[in-house]
Design a protein around this nucleic acid. Structure first.
Length: 506
RNA sequence: GCGGGACUAACUCAGUGGCAGAGUGCAACCUUGCCAAGGUUGAAGUCGAGGGUUCAAAUCCCUUGUCCCGCUCCA
C-alpha cells in the first residue's frame, strides 16, 4: 500500500508513542522543545543499533579501540578546537544576502555614508543604495542592511563548583556601577568564565585529547582508530523533524589516525564501509546515498568530506558525515596543551631527511554518525502497511515494522494459544530458555492470538512462537515469521537454536 | 527567525456559546482453539496552560507552551 509521504512522519510519530519507542520529554509538563525520551522499545532499538555499530567498528576490527569520555571536559579543549570562538564574538546576519559573519572581521566603513550594493548580492541584481548605520558592512555583498549583533551560544554552558555564579555576578554589578553595555558584559563574562564548563557539542574532541594515552596503553600502530558513542549537546538554531535534529542527541564517532598523504584512500575506504553498514540493516537500500561536499561547504578543519544521506519523507538529509579532518585537531591540541600529539614510526624513514625514524602528526578520517538519526532512519525504513482481510473478511490494514531482526527490540514473542490446559506453563518453559541465552523475549497471553500477532508486528518482533494443543502431546511449537506471516512447526526444545540461527545468518 | 495549521480519554478523531462524545485501546470475567474473534461489566478527560468577555466558554478574545507544514537559518 502506498503511503503518502506527508502522512508517513505522522504515522511514525504516532506509532512511536503508541508502542513505546519515543515519547516527548516531560510531556505531562507540556513538553520540552526538541527533547525526547526513548521508551521501552525505543531504548532496545537504540541499544541494538549502537551495539551493532560498536561490534562492526571495534570488536570485529584489530585496528580500532574504544573510549568513553566525560561529557564535561576542560574548557580549554573547546578553545583549542575552535568551538568557543563563536561564543564571545557577536555574529551578524546580512539581511540582503543572508550571510552570517563576525562583526569584528567585517570590512570597515564610516558610519553614515551612502553605500551602493546589489540586491541579493547577485550579479545583475537591482542596484541599491543605503546609509551605513554601523561602522562595517557585509563581507559578502557589501550591504549595510544588517541584523543586530547577537551572541550565539552553540554550546550549553554551565558552571562547575558549589559556589553560585549569580552571587559573583551580583558582586561585579554592584562593584562596577559606572560600567554599562559591552564593558559590563565583559566584566561579568570574566567572572563567569572562571568556573564555566561546557557540555560537549561532539564526542570527537575527547578522542584527540586522549590520543596519546590510547595509542600508548594499547600499543596501537598507525593507522588505527578510536571509537566512541555518547550524548552530545548543541543549541541548534532550529530543531526539526521529530528526533532528526534536537539539542541533545547521541553520536557514534570514530577517529581514524593515518599517515599524511594516505588520507584520501582511507576516506574512500571509510565512506564505503559506512555505506555498506547502513545498507546492511535496511529494507530500501537505494534510499541511502553519498554526497561529496563542495569546497565552499567544507568545515575549516576538513580537506574533503562526504555525507551519507537518507531519503527522509521531507527529502534527502544527512545521516552520517565522513570527514577528512587533516591534522588540524591534533596540531591545535598540541599547541594549546604543550603536549606533543604525534606518532613516531621506527620502521620508516623521514621523507624530509631520509634518515631512519619518522615522526609526524597523523591525519584523521572521521566517520561521525547520528545514533538517534539512525534510529529514525530505520523506523522510517521499517514502516510498512499492507491490506489484509480480517477474520470477518473485511479489508483491514496490517502495520508492520520490518526492522532487521538484529535491531528489533523484542526478538521473540512466546504465545500460548489460549491461557488454559497447561499452555501458559509450557510457554513459560520456552521463555526461560531464551532468558538464559540472553535473547530478549516476551511472554504474552493477553487477548486473542490474532491481536497478539498484530501487536508484535507493530513492535517489529520478527518471530512469534505459539504453544498450542499439539505442543502438549508432541512437544512442537509453531514459529511465525513477521513479514510473511508463514508458520512452521518445530520442536519446542529446538526453538532457541532455530531463532539463534536466524539471528545469526542475516 | 517569518508565515500558516493543529492541540478534546492511552491512540485516532467528532463536537463552533447551553449536561463531555464516538471508535479503537485498557481492566475484569465469560466464551474461544492461529492472524486486530464474540459477549458482559468497568475505569478512564484540569477540552495544552494562564488570563479575559459572558448568566453560561472545549467553542469568542488576549497571552503563552508544544507539535506539524512551508520558507529562512544552521551544518
Amino acid at each position: 500500500m502506498a503511503i503518502q509521504e506527508s502522512d508517513l512522519m505522522q504515522k511514525i510519530v504516532s506509532l512511536s508513542k503508541r508502542r513505546g519507542f519515543v515519547f516527548q520529554s516531560s510531556e505531562i509538563y507540556g513538553g520540552l522543545k526538541s527533547a525526547y525520551d526513548y521508551g521501552p522499545l525505543g531504548v532496545e532499538l537504540k541499544r541494538n543499533l549502537m551495539a551493532e555499530w560498536w561490534r562492526a567498528m571495534v570488536h570485529e576490527r584489530e585496528d580500532v579501540v574504544g573510549l568513553d569520555a566525560s561529557i564535561i571536559m576542560h574548557p580549554d579543549v573547546w578553545k583549542a578546537s575552535g568551538h568557543l570562538a563563536g561564543f564571545s564574538d557577536p555574529l551578524v546576519d546580512c539581511r540582503n544576502c543572508k550571510e552570517r559573519f563576525r562583526a569584528d572581521k567585517a570590512p570597515k566603513v564610516e558610519a553614515g555614508t551612502d553605500i551602493d550594493y546589489l540586491e541579493g548580492g547577485k550579479k545583475g541584481g537591482k542596484k541599491l543604495k543605503a546609509k551605513a548605520e554601523r561602522s562595517y558592512v557585509c563581507p559578502q555583498c557589501g550591504s549595510p542592511d544588517l541584523s543586530p549583533e547577537r551572541q550565539f551560544n552553540l554550546m550549553f554552558r554551565s558552571n562547575i563548583g558549589p559556589v553560585d555564579v549569580l552571587g559573583r555576578i551580583t558582586e561585579v554589578v554592584e562593584r562596577e556601577r559606572n560600567l554599562t553595555g559591552a564593558d559590563l558584559r565583559a566584566k561579568i563574562e570574566e567572572v563567569v568564565k572562571e568556573s564555566a564548563v561546557y557540555l560537549r557539542p561532539e564526542t570527537a574532541q575527547a578522542m584527540f585529547v586522549q590520543f596519546l594515552n590510547v595509542q600508548q596503553t594499547m600499543s596501537m600502530k598507525v593507522p588505527f582508530g578510536i571509537a566512541q558513542m555518547g550524548k552530545s549537546f548543541r543549541n541548534e538554531v532550529t530543531v526539526e523533524h521529530f528526533i532528526f535534529r534536537s539539542c541533545e542527541f547521541e553520536q557514534m564517532e570514530m577517529e581514524y589516525f593515518c599517515e599524511p598523504g594516505t588520507q584520501g584512500q582511507w576516506l574512500d575506504y571509510w565512506v564505503e564501509q559506512r555505506m555498506a553498514w547502513w545498507r546492511a540493516f535496511a529494507n530500501n537500500k537505494d534510499k541511502f546515498r553519498t554526497r561529496a561536499h563542495e569546497k565552499a561547504e567544507l568545515a575549516h578543519y576538513a580537506d574533503r568530506c562526504y555525507d551519507i544521506e537518507y531519503d527522509y519523507p521531507w527529502g534527502w538529509g544527512e545521516l552520517e558525515g565522513v570527514a577528512s579532518r587533516t591534522d588540524y585537531d591534533l596540531k591545535k591540541h598540541s599547541e594549546s596543551s604543550g603536549t606533543k600529539l604525534s606518532y613516531f614510526d621506527q620502521n620508516k624513514n623521514d621523507p624530509a631527511t631520509g634518515k631512519p625514524g619518522y615522526r609526524y602528526t597523523p591525519y584523521v578520517i572521521e566517520p561521525a554518525a547520528g545514533a538517534t538519526r539512525g534510529l529514525l532512519v530505520y523506523l522510517i525504513d521499517a514502516y510498512h502497511e499492507e491490506a489484509v482481510p480480517d477474520a470477518k473478511g473485511e479489508d483491514a490494514t496490517r502495520v508492520t515494522l520490518r526492522l532487521h531482526p538484529r535491531l528489533a527490540p523484542i526478538k521473540v514473542a512466546v504465545l500460548p494459544l489460549v491461557k488454559k490446559d497447561g499452555m501458559p506453563e509450557a510457554a513459560r518453559k520456552v521463555v526461560d530458555t531464551f532468558f538464559k541465552a540472553g535473547i530478549n523475549v516476551r511472554y504474552d497471553e493477553q487477548h486473542a492470538i490474532g491481536k497478539r500477532y498484530r501487536r508484535h508486528d507493530e513492535a517489529g518482533t520478527p518471530y512469534c512462537l505459539t504453544i498450542d494443543g499439539q505442543t502438549l502431546t508432541d512437544g512442537t511449537v509453531t514459529i511465525r515469521d513477521r513479514d510473511t506471516m508463514k508458520q512452521e512447526r518445530i520442536a519446542a526444545d529446538r526453538a532457541l537454536e532455530v531463532v539463534q540461527e536466524r539471528l545469526r545468518k542475516i
